[in-house]
């Protein structure tokens, strides 16, 4: 293995981590789309297909989480987990990703309240607001984490 090449355990954990992150982001974004389509009285096929795609993404998320547990139960996995737990850079990245996600959630809330309460208050239902906020927050947090961790 060369100096900067990823070790097999790093590759496995990274690949699975990407799957966990992007399936959660995709699942929440599709869930938000589903509720927006329903609230906007959009075509039924679109709400059904986004709902099914969201469910598939969340299923993939569960599978990836289960796979994560299995990876960290191996000897290499346990050693790598110990390294990850003591890694201050990773902790900084997690904090920053969380901060970005939280800031975006707050921004979405403000934008939604200002925009929809002015133009169309009926559109601002709890399912739309909650899922959109969640999708934005998770999406940005995941994206920020991946950008920082893959540098």
């Amino acid at each position: 293995m060369s100096n900067t090449q990823l070790s097999p355990i790093e590759q496995r954990v990274d690949a699975n981590q990407r799957l966990v992150a992007f399936s959660a982001a995709t699942g929440s974004i599709l869930l938000a789309i589903q509720h927006i389509v329903i609230e906007a009285h959009g075509p039924e096929w679109l709400s059904v297909s986004s709902s099914m795609a969201s469910a598939a993404a969340w299923l993939l998320f569960l599978v990836a989480m289960f796979k994560n547990q299995r990876i960290f139960k191996t000897e290499d996995g346990k050693a790598y987990r110990a390294q990850l737990e003591g890694d201050e850079i990773l902790q900084r990245i997690q904090k920053e990703a969380f901060t970005w996600g939280f800031a975006v959630m707050l921004m979405i809330q403000v934008v939604m309240i200002l925009t929809f309460s002015f133009f169309d208050p009926h559109f601002l239902s709890i399912p739309v607001a909650a899922t959109s906020t969640m999708a934005g927050g998770i999406g940005i947090a995941v994206l920020r984490y991946q950008i920082l961790w893959s540098r």
């Binding site: 100096n3 900067t4 990823l6 070790s7 790093e10 390294q83 201050e88 850079i89 990773l90």
Partner: peptide, 21 residues
């Protein structure tokens, strides 16, 4: 190697790489 240094200081190789860069 980055990995050897990372193990001795208790972080991941990626962190050593990102500090180095």
């Amino acid at each position: 190697t980055q990995d050897a240094l990372a193990k001795q200081i208790g972080v991941t190789r990626k962190s050593v790489n990102s500090i180095e860069n």
